[in-house]
């Protein structure tokens, strides 16, 4: 299990290759990447604030639960903080399991929990200034299925 919290950009392809090479015995690997989206066409940058200390603990706990519940061979979480341009990769998760269903489900679980239970806050910057992104009710509701 690997958890990385960093300001620097990363190469999802390289990360996935490395993760796959290390996941001995895996028959299925699923990965998800989150990208800075610009719905208005006016986003100059997205800034992610986090809670140093708690963020690492929360990510570790969420990943450990996924590994335990779906008997994963391995799990990877990379999440960036700080300023990012539209189109940049914010984060990725990857899961390795013997079979695909466990890998898919664990990746979805990781994403659902990471969205609402890891202390990150997104702020969008545009021509009218900065705006904190509001949490969606549906993100909170998504936790109920687990």
């Amino acid at each position: 299990m690997e958890i990385r919290l960093q300001q620097a950009a990363f190469l999802a392809g390289d990360e996935l290759d490395g993760f796959t090479a290390r996941a001995e015995g895996a028959g299925a690997i699923v990965s998800f990447s989150g990208i800075v989206r610009d719905d208005s066409g006016q986003l100059s940058e997205m800034v992610i604030e986090h809670y140093p200390g708690m963020t690492e603990r929360a990510l570790e706990a969420i990943a450990a639960e996924a590994v335990e519940r779906w008997k994963l061979i391995d799990a990877l979480v990379i999440h960036r903080f700080g300023p990012m341009k539209p189109g940049a990769q914010i984060m990725m998760v990857a899961t390795a399991a013997r079979h695909r269903r466990a890998a898919f489900e664990a990746a979805e679980f990781l994403m659902d929990y990471l969205k609402s239970r890891a202390p990150f806050w997104k702020q969008e910057h545009g021509p009218d200034g900065a705006r904190w992104v509001a949490a969606k009710d549906e993100d909170e509701a998504a936790l109920d299925r687990w």
């Binding site: 809670y51 969205k115 890891a118």
Partner: peptide, 10 residues
């Protein structure tokens, strides 16, 4: 003790 808005990670 930390106070913050609902989280928006991912």
């Amino acid at each position: 003790v930390a106070f913050f808005p609902p989280m928006t990670g991912g």
